[in-house]
């Protein structure tokens, strides 16, 4: 290698470093930052949210979390992460997993741990019927929003399957006899909620 080529390569390398050009692709970089992805490879990542790693079968009301359960996700995520969050957050979680006050939090529907981190736990990817996808694609979106396919890598990390609204039906139900009942919320109250 001639001196001229060596100097050119060195200059290019220094320029790239000083300009902050990422050495790895953006998706890999995001995976390196996201604790959800690092759980699969790094045991120490548990302590970013939990105070200690529980023994098998050990449970605690605070899930061994370092912060209040209602706050822990919000360290990275927004309470406006996707439409529907504000409509659900803080409502009575009922028989589902709630925060320290028994109210709906992010982890009521989502499981922060990807499949394989906690033995025996099933994590569901987001899935929807072709009809649903077509209807969503046809609808107009307000300014300030962008259409997105949820969870390219983990499929939104759902606790309940989304197909045929199984996740929604854990609380919301429309019985076939036509008498609507919404778990934990009186029908009229919910109607008012939907009307904003």
């Amino acid at each position: 290698m001639s001196d001229r080529v060596f100097v050119a390569l060195l200059t290019a390398a220094l320029f790239a470093l000083s300009a902050g050009v990422p050495v790895v692709a953006r998706s890999d970089d995001a995976d390196n930052v996201s604790p959800h992805a690092r759980m699969l490879t790094d045991d120490a990542v548990c302590l970013e949210c939990h105070t200690r790693r529980p023994a098998a079968g050990e449970h605690a009301a605070d899930h061994f979390l370092g912060a209040a359960p209602s706050e822990v996700c919000l360290a990275c995520h927004s309470e406006y992460e996707h439409p529907g969050t504000k409509e659900h957050l803080g409502r009575d979680a009922g028989r589902l997993l709630g925060d320290e006050h028994g109210r709906i939090a992010c982890f009521t529907c989502h499981d922060p741990h990807p499949a394989g981190v906690i033995a025996g736990r099933t994590i569901h990817r987001f899935d929807a019927s072709d009809t649903t996808r077509a209807l969503v694609a046809a609808r107009a979106l307000p300014p300030g929003t962008t259409r997105r396919e949820p969870g390219a890598r983990f499929g939104a990390l759902l606790r309940y399957p989304s197909r045929d609204a199984a996740g929604c039906r854990t609380c919301h139900e429309t019985p076939p006899d036509g008498a609507r009942s919404w778990y934990g919320v009186a029908p009229n109250t919910l109607d008012r909620v939907l009307l904003y």
Partner: peptide, 23 residues
């Protein structure tokens, strides 16, 4: 197979979550 998400769409990103009123 018209699921809840067909009308109550969640698969949408809020561009600026820090702007609370707009979000």
């Amino acid at each position: 197979h018209v699921e809840c998400f067909a009308c109550h769409t969640m698969a949408v990103g809020i561009d600026d979550p820090k702007n609370a009123a707009q979000a």
